[in-house]
Amino acid sequence: MSKIPASVLAFEKKLVPSDGIMYGTTWENRNSQVTPLKLQEKSVRGTISNRLKKSEEGKIDAKIESANLQTVDSCALTPEQDTLKLSFTLKVLSGVENPSACNHEGFNQSYTQAVKQFMEKNPGFTEIANRYAANLANGRFLWRNRVGCEDIEIRVNVLNEGNERSRNFQSQDMDMRNFDNLPSNVIELGSLIADTLSGRNEFLLLEIDAFAKIGKSQDVYPSEELVLDKSNSKEKKSKILFDVDGVAAMHSQKIGNAIRTIDTWYPGYEEHQRPIAIDPYGAVTNLGRAYRQPKQKTDFFSLFDKFSQGEKLDAIEDEYFVMAVLVRGGVFGEKQ
């Protein structure tokens, strides 16, 4: 199939998370008393832990003495607190069948038709939406804060006027490696998301409160900031954490990345045994690897060229992947 004829093509994201704000509390009083977590600035002396060169071995004492003083941000619970609370909102939007920009009318029509066909399928968006729901319920968005928790509870409130409803999830029980055998309340939440993505409902507003019992005085991990500093100042901090008005926080992008970690359809899942975030090339940042290679025609662009122009894809899983990339949004026109 030929390349898509639109040189300008863009989609808005359909899952819109806010930044996540971090609070400290106790497991017993988690619903009544929470305190915003502040960042601490510490000075630490860098240590020498890298392997020394042969010529440096004799100078280890001198090296250790001259190790740089570094300033870093950190964040932790107080000795009274044993539980981290992370709060954010998530907006789910309909309208994936309409690109936000497209400069080819014929393509626009074939695309919209392909998406509408997908929406009418069963399970269609339900499979994708259930996975998003699972990633809210399992607390994947807590990232490193989820590791080694004694207990995790997630509360998801629907805020849409007239449909307010609250659900609790016990995250510890959920399997993070696949999306099989999801609990019924997750499927319930998934069907709300699917209704919106398929356009049966215009938008869905969710409020998520996550409680992770991580233990007294334990470190918590807000997002790290990427400072585009061009100076070589000595006062430069080596680690800057993210805060919202002085309260430790998680970037909305980081939360979004966790929610769309639903791709188990990529080549290599058998081996890796972990879902990866939806990405056109199946790229995984911390592995520096892209699982969906254009050579094997498993990347988004190869599949989208076919799908959007009315050709059938080999597997329904490929359609799931394509639709999930469109939900993520992006600029897909000009040659990448």
């Binding site: 400072v227 585009l228 500093d229 520096g288």
Partner: peptide, 20 residues
């Protein structure tokens, strides 16, 4: 983010390309 006299922009990391 202000280091010295002049501030720097706090960016978001761009997505990886097909080579990772």
């Amino acid at each position: 983010h202000k280091v010295n006299y002049v501030s720097s922009i706090i960016g978001t990391s761009n997505p990886l390309d097909k080579t990772g």
